[in-house]
Amino acid sequence: MSLPLPPLRTHDPAAFGRVALLLGGTSSERAVSLDSGRNVLEALRARGIDAQPVDGIAALREGLLQQRFDRVFNILHGGEGENGVLQGLLQAFGIPYTGSGVLGSALTMDKIRTKQVWIAAGLPTPRFVRLAPGADLRAAALKLGLPVFVKPSCEGSSVGVARAQAEADIAAAEAVARAYGGEMLMEEMVVGDELTVGILGDLALPSIRIVPKGGWYDYAAKYVAEDTQYLCPGLDGAEEDAIRALALAAFRAAGAGGWGRVDVMRARADGRLLLLEVNTAPGMTSHSLVPKAARQVGVGFEELCWRILEQTLAPSAGGTP
């Protein structure tokens, strides 16, 4: 598949100065972040970039106070790496960084409010219910209509997600809600194809259709299993054009920028495309999807990391509010 990739802005690794590769942290996605970070660090250094790993925001803050870094490549998944806290800190220090700014990060970390913005913008998303802490999950499920997914509003990587396909499954979903304690999203379960679209600057990469052997793309299927199939592009012709246009519109409507990933369901019954969520710091592991899509258009992992970091050189690219 051929897409109009812009030319590289620079071929000089010195143009980036000293780069902090932010990884790890304390969120539930720490292990994935460490894996992603190792891969990105190796890619940046292979291209001659002066990149240093920094584990967590507290360590980064100390490095910034000591003026050790000129820019930040953020691969801190979840928590304060994606909810606007890190982005606000870096803007206060005047340090350019990869990915979305404060607004896009904070909004897309909250699945419920992202969906509310999409609805206001006329973009399609599955029906849902907001569950406040202690809400009657059983009553909500029966009102929305089974089957449903129940998941924390502000977690990623399929952490803490439960399915309730019948009334007998609701107790397990209630246990998940009690374990997290915070606001939960209950969403209708769309029967169909799960797809994702990587975003790189102003370009929507080819879609990927995910076919897990177990029928559900959970944490294990994402990061552990070797039998999950990834079909890229995931759709053909006009449908592929439509999902890429929808993903880019959803990304922009949510205030996101730089790079990221938009997850979409295609309903089997009528072919409708329905938006699920945005990830503003996607995984960069051996199983991750943005690198797979980039390879489809001839961009290898090292070049992908370079192109993401290049966005910090452009005033209108990633790292803007």
Rank of each mutant, 00 (worst) to 15 (best):
P4T: 01
P7V: 03
L8F: 03
D12S: 03
G17C: 06
V19H: 07
A20T: 03
G25I: 02
S28T: 14
V32P: 03
D35N: 04
R38P: 02
L41M: 08
A43D: 13
I49A: 07
P53C: 13
G56M: 04
I57T: 15
R61S: 14
Q66G: 13
Q67V: 04
N74S: 11
H77A: 14
E80W: 08
G81W: 11
E82G: 06
A92R: 14
G94R: 09
Y97W: 06
V102H: 00
V102A: 00
G104E: 13
R113H: 15
R113E: 11
T114C: 15
V117N: 04
A120C: 01
L123P: 07
L123F: 03
P124L: 07
T125W: 03
A135G: 02
A135C: 00
A140W: 07
L146S: 08
P147R: 10
P152R: 03
C154T: 07
E155I: 12
G156W: 10
S157K: 09
S157W: 05
S158H: 05
V159K: 02
R163N: 07
A164F: 05
Q165Y: 05
A166P: 01
A171C: 08
R178Y: 03
M184K: 08
L185S: 10
M189P: 00
V191C: 11
L195P: 13
T196P: 00
V197Q: 12
V197Y: 08
L200F: 06
L203V: 01
A204N: 10
L205G: 11
R209S: 05
I210L: 10
K213H: 13
D218M: 01
D218W: 00
Y219F: 15
A220Y: 08
A220L: 11
V224I: 15
V224Q: 15
E226L: 10
T228R: 07
L231M: 11
C232Y: 03
P233L: 09
G234I: 01
E240F: 06
I243P: 00
R244C: 12
A253Q: 04
W259V: 02
W259M: 01
R261E: 14
R261T: 12
M265K: 10
L274Y: 06
L276D: 14
T285Y: 14
L289D: 14
V290S: 10
R295M: 07
E302V: 00
E303I: 02
W306D: 13
L313Y: 12
A314Y: 02
P321T: 04
